[in-house]
Design a protein around this nucleic acid. Structure first.
Lengths: 181, 181
DNA sequence: TATCCCATGTAAAGCGTTACATGATTTA
DNA sequence: TAAATCATGTAACGCTTTACATGGGATA
């Protein structure tokens, strides 16, 4: 499943331009589990057009490039539903934050605490963002409540886990900890 | 932060061959947050050797290729600690499973339930694997308990979230749900 | 006045995955 | 006897990111 397939998927929800598709990846529930930027979306839409999976109608605008609105074709819809029936590839996750913490012993004493403070703040921001997203109950057939609920649960868990377990890293090897033993 | 940097990091824990580094990504805590396979590890080690960040001593073996054991140099250690001081890049997450569920409305009725059943089983397997990993309390200076604890919390959350919220997808638009309203 | 938003696109570089190539030993 | 483990490496392909290129309108 690549950006091209996901563009097709988004177009099953209604016509859209490349710019609007990008906005969905940035702001909507789908962005929680898949990212795509202009550099891959525009070529993907061109290729989908060549393949006859979408059609494009240009809307003239003043002072900016024509807005190119894409619509999925019957063949496109068929292809996408077949894609959905495939066994989903395993999740991919990469976190430089956690990599850094795995090597916490190599860092200066205060660095670990600062990193964790920043991370907790980040997760709290994400919670706020997703709560706002949930309130929008916005357009599209995407199952937003299910997805946003999972994101919220995840970020809340992260806040509490980090708060409750940071001592595992912050006290490691410090003089205080060694005296206490 | 790329595979090359991570190889360097693993070598701060002790000498290792490319094969052993790969095993760490596959079996140890670091594999929870970063993946790397032979195709990237071997070239990375060669480049690190050229750059003088690691040194290599070949151990002759019978019936198989010489085992090439790598040791980090002082310069390598310095470079890695500098890497750790950088602001970590944001996490990357991609999930075809969740993408599929976002488009649950396009799937046959029983498909969604099957997907979720399989996913719950997967998370339960991961819980079992991480519990075993935690029991090993194995080698290296990696902060395994902290990392494994997070992984366990995550997979347990996923099991309960999916169990408690699957009705949001499974009843959507079905006749029963519409009659009930 | 400055920043953000709208709007599309290209090209190159970077990075990683996958497949291929080889082959002995140990375990089930 | 089949499969997994040990052991290293190359090459091609694929995908994504980043930077570049352009520019008007709206908002703060």
């Amino acid at each position: 499943m690549d950006v091209r397939t996901l563009c097709l998927g988004i177009l099953t929800l209604g016509d859209a331009s490349g710019y609007e598709i990008r906005k969905m990846f940035a702001d909507d529930a789908i962005g929680e589990v898949f990212d795509a930027n202009f550099g891959s979306i525009y070529p993907a839409l061109n290729r989908l057009t060549e393949e006859g999976l979408v059609v494009c109608t240009a809307q003239a605008q003043e002072g900016r490039p024509d807005k190119k609105v894409y619509s999925i074709t019957a063949e496109g819809r068929t292809l996408f539903t077949h894609e959905l029936m495939k066994v989903p590839a395993r999740d991919r996750f990469r976190s430089e934050f956690f990599v850094t913490l795995l090597f916490a012993d190599l860092l200066p004493g205060d660095r670990v605490g600062d990193l964790i403070d920043g991370r907790i703040a980040h997760h709290q921001q994400e919670v706020a963002r997703l709560e706002a997203l949930a309130r929008q109950e916005s357009a599209g057939a995407l199952n937003t409540p299910f997805m946003v609920g999972f994101g919220l649960a995840h970020h809340r868990l992260a806040v509490s886990y980090l708060t409750e377990n940071r001592h595992l890293l912050e006290n490691a090897g410090s003089p205080v900890a060694q005296i206490a033993e």
